[in-house]
Design a protein around this nucleic acid. Structure first.
Lengths: 349, 349
DNA sequence: AGGGCGTGCGTTACCGCTAACATCACTGGT
DNA sequence: ACCAGTGATGTTAGCGGTAACGCACGCCCT
């Protein structure tokens, strides 16, 4: 190669550089690089060679502006440290990888103000679609989403009024179902342990469904315990100890997530407590971690990957086909997995 | 408000719409929206009102193209499911939140090909800087990074030749140090359990440092066990059982990450094995989860958040000040935390 | 020979915004 | 009264691509 690659170039490479290097017009280079339109095999390879030699990387900013197309999908989630969301993300990526679309992630830390800001930032890049966790958004956020004129899929939760499409499970139903099973197994003195996050609407809805089912059986939650921050596993231990100290007669503990449930389980096993004979346990989420525990915690699957995949499919379809119907709604069924901490041998199932 | 908001607008909003709605030039609107240049308080509020009424969201694509400035920092990591990376990310966000910069995450799944593709995609958005995990990249990737003419910070690992700046710990040293301590505690028949990932260079380097220190003491790893996929906690159990079945006389197990270490720990505790009397254990990473275990697993902290913060600071500094020196190198010291599974009471410390 | 058509490439006019400079009305000093 | 200085706004010319159309040229058919 004629050493044309001046190491200390000041001006960044553009199509023009490639076009000059290969002796064709910018338009032709553009066509080659995008595999669009007819270009003869001869010019095609000539251009590709030049582009590679220069180390040219197309400028999507200019491309997007000119073509009015941006192959980005904004994905807005509350957190990355709760493993639920990375799992949803991988479901999304899995589907989008088959398309020209690309996910871009924004994290809100469960804060509506931050959600609004993140959303504004993302929309200012004019993505082709939005996937956003939850149905609860500030009014400006909802307005932005509506005004954006792009497909919006709200995920994780279906208990509420969607803006456009929605994919998720009913957390209310999940809580209800779990409570029903708990009652049926004969538990009567039930404690709840959860996170001190008024903005985790899904946890709240599970709790609401839970208490509703209890109420139907004439029961209510005997005591509650909340935490925030720190190692969930450790908090699960501590809260379990605390709640049982206050109410040693509790016969069931419902945890708002598997991590604290696992902490409670480990704690009780160490204490030599008979599970589920003396006390039953259940969590929520179906995290992979549970498989490695000494005892399988009862839980309900949140259908994370499925939700991600379905949401991405809706987005992909809507973008590929402008005429596709908006407002689709997909409800997954949260599967109960009773594990070893819920079913009492003598009970019917 | 005079109902000017036509719900079914086809053409998306632009500066021009705002400028017409507020009776000033586009330039003035632009100035207001960016808080730049002198604008009288009167026009400022007039413009802001119009923008809000219309629900205008600036188009960063056009803005970036015109100003030749993109306030994005590409962050390229192997995975989101290994909690290490979300923690690094939050360190990065923490720092970038104080600046106009914004992180954009790309995930490679430990695949060099995918890394190359992700990098190409990200660079085509012309980010202002790149933070990328690891020092091992394909030649084209390295070339792209060099040619991009932007600050690059390689993170997590410092054992190798950086492209530009680097922030991390020495995994080789971490492995070495752990082995040294193990030997000093009198363990002699040592097994290694890790992940079957030839492309996890950091795990490899820890292992190399580990065996090197053992060799210096005239020892070598007695047996090894590898896994891939699945629940790490469960795999830790299974591998521990398997390796001990083959070599019941092992007196120490070194796990390449805390998750499988925790699985092993739980397994051995269930078996009633005396830890660390009969057998010692150690992992790597200092994950928060460990705090909730019945026994504290010996581990070494990978300084995740610190690395994220330091990398972001370098990027921010380099972008703010063009003249800042490239090639900075920050080495954190991986702290050993012996927990309850390494130190034998009768040993010196 | 002329018309119709497909192929391969170039030209032109933007996309929506901003840098840089131009303009214009004041203000104040002398 | 004149000019420089300043503050508030407008004008022009791109940024680096792409859509849409234009235009040779060769080919086939009649």
């Amino acid at each position: 190669m004629a050493g044309k690659t001046a190491k200390l170039r000041k001006r960044p490479l553009t199509l023009r550089d490639v076009s000059e290097a290969s002796g064709v017009s910018e338009m032709t280079v553009s066509r080659v690089l995008r595999n669009r339109g007819d270009v003869s095999e001869a010019t095609r390879s000539k251009v590709l060679k030049a582009a590679k030699a220069l180390g040219y990387v197309p400028n999507k900013i200019a491309g997007a502006l000119a073509s009015q197309r941006v192959n980005l999908v904004a994905v807005i989630i509350p957190s990355l440290s709760n493993m639920v969301f990375p799992e949803v993300l991988s479901g999304i990526s899995e589907v989008l990888d088959e398309t020209p679309l690309q996910p871009v992630v924004g994290v809100t830390n469960y804060s509506p103000e931050r959600e609004e800001k993140v959303l504004y930032e993302m929309l200012s890049w004019r993505p082709s679609g939005v996937i956003i966790a939850g149905l609860e958004h500030s009014d400006p956020s909802r307005a932005m989403l509506r005004a954006a004129g792009i497909p919006v899929v709200e995920i994780m939760d279906v208990d509420g009024e969607p803006i456009d499409a929605v994919v998720g499970i009913s957390h209310r139903a999940a809580g209800y179902e779990m409570a029903t099973e708990i009652v049926q197994q004969g538990y009567r003195r039930i404690g709840f342990l959860g996170t001190k996050m008024p903005l985790d609407h899904r946890a709240r809805k599970r709790f609401e469904g839970f208490t509703e089912a209890l109420a139907k059986a004439g029961l209510e939650v005997v005591d509650q315990e909340f935490y925030s921050g720190g190692s969930a596993l450790l908090k699960g231990r501590e809260m379990t100890e605390a709640i049982l100290k206050r109410h040693p007669d509790l016969d069931f503990l419902y945890y708002s997530n598997d991590m604290i449930g696992a902490g409670g389980l480990l704690f009780l096993l160490e204490q030599g407590v008979d599970i589920p004979g003396r006390i039953g346990l259940a969590g929520f989420n179906g995290v992979e971690l549970l498989e490695g525990l000494p005892r399988q915690l009862a839980t309900m699957d949140a259908c994370r990957a499925e939700i991600g995949r379905a949401a991405a499919e809706i987005i992909a379809r809507r973008i590929a086909d402008e005429t596709a119907e908006p407002g689709e709604k997909i409800v997954f069924k949260s599967r109960m997995s009773p594990g070893d901490t819920l079913l009492r041998s003598d009970s019917s199932s």
